[in-house]
């Protein structure tokens, strides 16, 4: 099956070019920093406050901050690993000897998508699992709804990945990188504006945020993840900022994101199948 051949090739490339090992090594470094920070902050809090809800508050806060960093890292890594894969191989003509084989072109795109999706999801699970384990071992705290929340983060990462692969079928590597990162930035800014708008009860600002989420739902998915993480929190720990969910995205937004992803992937298949190389 050509799809699997291409998917395996993609994963092997990540291995051979040391991408996988550097990412894992830096991931371990990231977890180490988080573990140390968590340990010492927790130590400090334990000395001053003994109330269990305050301790839980600190765990939720730090874990959410860690997950936020993971979300950002995984999204950036998803773009970086995949941004050159199609446009770069078109530019170098590496793709010529592949697409003239007896396989439909769309299978090349699906194979690459599968390979990168597997890598990105594994990385997400590795980092989230590391965070959870550190927090659990140090404090015995388990976050609620972690599965559902991580599912939202995974969807966001796949969305960014799909955007970068779809862009690569039409744009040069550099233009594609700019496009994907800017969309990511718009979604982030829009999310922030929406939070401020909700706080100030300014409907216009909220609408700007919603429109930006429709353009790129990645940030809305992160908000949805946070809403899952913090459903049972004793207090609302955050008033504002990326860890806050003043307005929880609706389930409809999640459905929209799934449709968006599938549509984008189909566009990528169509676009690559009919372009001149």
């Amino acid at each position: 099956m050509a799809i699997l051949v291409i998917a395996r090739l993609t994963i092997r490339e990540a291995q051979r070019r040391r991408l996988l090992w550097v990412a894992l090594f830096m991931g371990v470094a990231f977890l180490l920093v988080f573990g140390l920070a968590f340990h010492f902050i927790r130590l400090d809090i334990e000395r001053h406050a003994a109330a269990t809800d305050q301790l839980a508050f600190v765990s939720v806060f730090l874990l959410t901050a860690g997950l936020y960093a993971v979300n950002l890292l995984v999204n950036v890594v998803a773009v970086l690993v995949s941004v050159t894969t199609i446009s770069g191989e078109i530019e170098s003509h590496t793709i010529d000897a592949i697409v003239t084989k007896p396989i439909p072109r769309w299978q090349v795109v699906v194979g690459k998508w599968l390979g990168y999706a597997a890598l990105v999801l594994l990385y997400l699970v590795f980092l989230v699992g590391g965070l959870m384990l550190i927090v659990y071992l140090r404090s015995g705290f388990m976050m609620d709804n972690i599965g559902r929340g991580v599912l939202m983060m995974a969807l966001a990462a796949l969305l960014i990945l799909t955007m970068s692969i779809a862009g690569g079928t039409r744009l040069s590597t550099i233009a594609n990188g700019v496009l994907t990162f800017m969309l990511f930035g718009i979604a982030f800014l829009g999310g922030l504006v929406e939070q401020v708008g909700a706080l100030l009860r300014n409907q216009a600002a909220v609408n700007v945020g919603i429109v930006s989420s429709l353009i790129m739902p990645a940030d809305a998915l992160w908000k949805k993840a946070v809403a899952y993480f913090q459903t049972n929190s004793p207090t609302t720990p955050f008033e504002l900022g990326p860890f806050a969910t003043i307005t929880e995205p609706s389930t409809l937004m999640v459905v929209y994101a799934v449709i968006y992803l599938v549509g984008l992937l189909l566009f990528a298949l169509w676009s690559f199948s009919r372009r001149d190389l």
């Binding site: 003509h93 007896p102 439909p104």
Partner: peptide, 19 residues
């Protein structure tokens, strides 16, 4: 696609996966 199983191609500016 069936014809392609019996066609070979050496591209001009070929670059293959060097790794």
């Amino acid at each position: 696609l069936a014809a392609r199983t019996r066609i070979g191609y050496l591209p001009e500016h070929f670059r293959f996966h060097e790794w």
